[in-house]
Amino acid sequence: MLLSLLNSMPGAVAFGLIWGIMAIGVYITFRILDIADLSVDGSICTGGAVCIMMIQKGYNFALAMLVAFLAGMLAGFVTGLLHTVLGIPAILAGILTQLSLYSINMKIMGKSNQIVNVDKYDLLVSLRYIRDVPFYRNSIFVISCLVLLLIGVLYWFFGTEAGSAIRATGCNRAMSKAQGINTSFYTVIGLMISNGLVAFSGALLSQYQGFADINMGRGAIVIGLAAVIIGEAIFSKVFRNFALKLLAVAIGGIVYYIVYQLVIWLGVDTDMLKLLSAAVVAVFLAVPYLKDKHFTKAFKKGEEK
């Protein structure tokens, strides 16, 4: 029994890292732009669908992943336009994109799921590349390198003038406009980068599990948020640097999947897992609010005395 749990650990780490990339995308909208973007539920599948279909057609996996990234950016662009140009609230704009992506993803794949066989095609990562392969082919190693690379690029980008403008937009729109920042433009850019990353993780996910499925993104935003929140809960006191904060989010993804495996191993009904995930996220989102409310009350009482 315990052995089966241990056996499932490397897989959990690989899954966690892939979702960690997705969660970094969520972090960009949720924490940096201060927008809850629900398009990610659709764009993760778009990334997977584009990647699988291109690999099936014989394209190189690197090109397939690049196109998946661009497809995700396009999805973010649409959400961004709906929100900034047409004035639709961000959450609703995300839902509209997500729903339309369901149709688009069906059209990309032609049916509700598509597989790639790792024996037939050259893939970057796969369930099969976890054991008995040289370390540089090991999926955990490969994905770890990708995560570090992405964090490096994002760290650089958010330190540039344009990246700083995105951070300022998320922090204080009135101030940003007063400083000549086109907040609509940078909101769209932020959404594009976020959805690009999410689609990229979808491309990795579909290769890793060997298939893309129309429902693979269901509840993705909740898993992404869970990873963000877990990462912050564990490391917020230690990791102050931006790059380390992103690393914390990726590690949050791993922790999520290890706990996930643990819960399955404990024999919890797998149908209940989504409910459980949502409940965990709800609790963690509520804690800072309740804490704040409680503290303010205590403070006021203290003052009255």
Partner: peptide, 13 residues
């Protein structure tokens, strides 16, 4: 941020 008011914000540091 304020020092770049009215200027183009690119990929410079």
């Amino acid at each position: 941020l304020a020092n770049r008011r009215g200027k183009c914000r690119g990929l410079k540091i």
